[in-house]
């Protein structure tokens, strides 16, 4: 066991050279590589954390937008529902108004038709009554209906002479209105009868198609008249009475 000092010196140098070589070709590259990889991993971790934060922020934004959309959706649906209800109410009100208007129109139409029918019935009844009365007078008394009407009015003139004079005043005029023009004989007789009751009173004859058959003599605010209206009214009452009685009989018959 001996020490060779030249070998010792050489080995010291060799060791120092080996330290330098390994430092140059082993430790530095390996440690730098590890450091670079660790730095890269740290960077990626930081990027991942940043990306995660961004993703969370974006997720929060989208959640807010989604919640807002849901809220708007509910509001819009509520608004649309309310609008639809309002429109439905308006349409229903319009329909009800239109129905009411149509019902009123229909009632008015029915009333008008009834009125027309009644007027026609009155006219027809009056015509029939005048025709029958004229025929009966001609057959039984050999007189015209107009002469009998004039005679009837003349008869009613005498008891009312005082009232007629008061109503006529100083410059009164007598106006005789008929449905059809009176024959000349009837006019002359009426004029003569009036002159007997109220002398020197001017007289004028008029026709009115809307007036019921008959004669109306006016002096100022007073008048003496005979028309078939009263008879027609009586005829209507009679018909209604008969109809009512027929309905009752039918009802009783139905009851039996």
């Amino acid at each position: 066991m001996s020490i060779d000092w030249i070998t010792v010196a050489a080995q010291v140098v060799n060791f120092l050279v080996l330290v330098w070589l390994l430092k140059r070709f082993l430790y530095r590259p390996i440690l730098d590589g590890i450091d670079a990889r660790e730095a890269e991993i740290a960077d990626r971790m930081a990027e991942a954390v940043e990306a995660g934060e961004k993703a969370r922020a974006t997720e929060g934004q989208y959640r807010d937008q989604l919640a807002s959309l849901h809220a708007n959706e509910a509001t819009m649906a509520d608004r649309a529902l309310r609008k639809a209800r309002d429109e439905r109410d308006v349409l229903l009100a319009n329909a009800h108004a239109r129905l009411e208007q149509e019902r009123q129109d229909w009632n008015a139409h029915l009333a008008e038709e009834g009125r027309k029918y009644t007027a026609e019935l009155h006219q027809a009844g009056a015509g029939a009554l005048m025709s029958l009365t004229r025929k009966a007078l001609d057959d039984l008394a050999d007189e015209t209906l107009e002469e009998r009407i004039v005679a009837h009015v003349a008869t009613r003139l005498r008891p009312m002479s005082v009232d007629l004079r008061k109503a006529a005043g100083a410059d009164a005029e007598a106006i005789a209105t008929t449905h059809n023009r009176l024959p000349k004989a009837a006019r002359d007789r009426l004029k003569a009868d009036l002159q007997e009751v109220i002398p020197d009173v001017p007289m004028r004859f008029e026709t009115d198609a809307t007036q019921a058959p008959g004669l109306i003599l006016r002096m100022g605010g007073a008048q003496v008249a005979w028309t078939v209206d009263a008879y027609i009214d009586e005829l209507d009452a009679l018909l209604e009475e008969q109809l009512a009685a027929g309905g009752g009989v039918r009802g009783q018959g139905d009851g039996h």
Binding site: I3, T7, V8, Q11, V12, F15
Partner: peptide
């Protein structure tokens, strides 16, 4: 070799 180990010890 003792020379080597001595060199390392010296280092």
């Amino acid at each position: 070799s003792l020379s080597t180990t001595a060199a390392l010890a010296l280092a």
